[in-house]
Design a protein around this nucleic acid. Structure first.
Length: 510
RNA sequence: GGCCCGUUCGUCUAUCGGUUAGGACAAAAGAUUUUCAUUCUUUAAAGAGGGGUUCGACUCCCCUACGGGCUACCA
């Protein structure tokens, strides 16, 4: 039982990676790191009809953006068990199904879609559970009911067939889930699942078991939606005689939508105003855009942190964790059983924590991009950009907000906060502004301490209290009522600009 | 419908039989800050219901209710 820990994240490329999937990937990654094991990425593309171009690339890019790096697998360099795309592993699955058929654990089934529908309707009419199972299989067209000759003939003819798993009629299947404890199912409630489809591809159930075995996976950590099919997988390991190599199972609680209940789904995000995808995604056919955390101004570290806490906690009061710290602290034991609702406020708070930790240099590119979008021909001094970043940093929660909170550093206001103007402007103000202009002209080194001094001198001379004017002054310089320390703003925009803004206000408001 | 899983403040959660049921986000109030934002202090806020087991249950068992997942030749 001291096999090297190997876990995998195995999404299917049917669209953008959902944030719940990202969390599953994260927990797998953390588990591997914690135990000095391997985390691999396997692409489960056995359903060719659901293939979506770009989805695989999206998955890889998302994981890379977040720092959830695999050691083997698609997009991360092949390892000893290549290929890691199930469509490329197609030939080997047939071998394993044949083994099952030879052992009498599986059988050919030739039923058409109409046959199946007929069976289901018949059973439903008599109020019985409609499923292909130990009882109904005797009435269907399969290698259990047809003669050997007939089966051979059909196979040679190239008739369409699937291979179904022959479930024991009534058997309790118990397994230990690392999160939920002992879970048991009875095969009488299950059906003879298709293992091998008529297009020659395996179903998820077969592929997942075969690959996990071949890739020496030791822990299967996946979403709760897989819990009902886990007993089938257990039975498959037994049927193959791989029980001693069977991985442990851990079924993660679901991510729920913030209001009401139910699984968080694609539509929820843009409706509720927060992303459910790591990055923007444009549907290749409908061109519909689904927004992502990256473009919404979230930092990858924050997304990791907030996702980690949706369904897990360290048992201490520490909340801010780097990926490395998470890997150190993580354990399946501390994963909760019940679903977690996504909390937008908490997500915002997490991001804010990380934005504040950012250096001015790290924040600068975000401001620069806002600058490029709004002032295409700008050539703002890098030192100024850094200075603005430093001043505005604690005001914002998302990187993309930085432009909105700092545009006035680069664009003089043309309108003013009306409430402040209405409350604070009076006939004494123009004289004060003239006085300010005069005082500012005389400052040699235009730094905030000097500016403040000159400011107070003017106020004193005009007999106006600082309290009554400062916010108006802020509005005159920036147009808005809130922001970083005002005299530092003046310093940053410089003497000429400061004076010019005062003059403009004089013409506009007097 | 059937099967399975779940249920502690609005939200994420702590508690692994004995606690004034703790923390965080959000909310409210106050203080600081020229403003906004910070920061600090404080307040309000929870064991779904009913039975057991036990000297003692949020914690263990059963039932009910509610929520969720699954029920395809999808993953």
């Amino acid at each position: 039982m001291d096999r090297r820990v190997r876990v995998r994240f195995a999404p299917s490329p049917t669209g953008p990676l959902h944030i719940g999937g990202v969390r599953t990937a994260l927990y797998n990654y953390l588990y591997a790191k914690k135990h000095g094991g391997d985390f691999l990425l396997r692409i489960e593309d056995t359903d060719q009809t659901r293939f979506v171009p770009g989805a695989e690339e999206y998955i890889i890019e998302s994981l890379k953006w977040l720092g959830i790096e695999a050691v083997e697998g698609i997009g991360f360099g092949d390892g000893p068990h290549a290929p890691y795309r199930q469509s490329e592993r197609k030939p080997m699955y047939r071998e394993y199904v044949m083994q099952l058929i030879a052992n009498g654990m599986a059988y050919y089934a030739f039923d058409t879609a109409e046959d199946l529908e007929g069976m289901r309707e018949r059973l439903k009419a008599s109020n019985v559970d409609a499923k292909y199972d130990a009882i109904t299989r005797g009435t269907m067209k399969n290698s259990l009911t047809l003669s050997e000759d007939e089966v051979t003939k059909r196979l040679e003819n190239g008739d369409a067939y699937v291979v179904r798993f022959k479930l024991p009629r009534k058997e309790e299947v118990k397994f230990h889930d690392e999160i939920r404890g002992w879970v048991s199912f009875n095969t009488s409630q299950m059906d003879d699942k298709v293992l091998f489809k008529s297009d020659g591809m395996p179903t998820y159930h077969l592929a997942n078991v075969v690959d996990d075995y071949l890739m020496e996976i030791t822990q299967v950590i996946r979403g709760e939606e897989w819990l009902p099919s886990a007993p089938l997988h257990v039975l498959l390991y037994r049927a193959f005689g791989w029980e001693d190599k069977m991985p442990k199972f851990a079924h993660l609680p679901l991510l729920l939508k913030p209001e009401g209940n139910g699984k968080l789904s694609k539509r929820d995000g843009d409706r509720l105003g927060f992303p459910v995808f790591p990055m923007n995604w444009v549907d290749p056919t409908t061109k519909e855009l689904s927004s992502g955390y990256r473009e919404a101004g979230y930092l990858p570290e924050a997304v990791i942190n907030l996702l980690a806490f949706l369904g897990w906690n360290p048992g201490t009061s520490q909340e801010i964790f780097s990926l490395e710290e998470l890997a150190e602290a993580f354990s399946l034991e501390r994963v909760s059983k019940s679903g977690a609702k996504f909390d937008q406020n908490k997500a915002k708070w997490f991001n804010q924590q990380y934005v504040r930790k950012l250096s001015d240099e790290a924040l600068a590119p975000y401001l620069q991009s806002g600058l490029n979008q709004n002032l295409p021909d700008n050539s703002v001094n890098p030192a100024t950009i850094l200075k603005v970043c430093g001043l505005v940093k604690e005001k914002i929660s998302f990187t993309k907000e930085i432009w909105d909170y700092s545009s006035y550093f680069f664009i003089a206001p043309s309108t003013y906060d009306e409430q402040v103007v209405k409350k604070r402007w009076n006939e004494k103000i123009p004289a004060l502004l003239d006085n300010l202009i005069e005082n500012f002209q005389n400052i040699d080194s235009f730094i905030h301490t000097e500016i403040e001094q000159a400011y107070h001198q003017a106020l004193e001379k005009q007999g106006i209290l600082g309290k009554d004017f400062l916010q108006l002054f802020r509005v005159i310089l920036t147009g808005v009522a809130g922001g970083p320390p005002l005299f530092e703003i003046a310093e940053t925009i410089g003497k000429e600009e400061t004076i010019s803004r005062i003059k403009y206000a004089l013409t506009k408001l007097a």
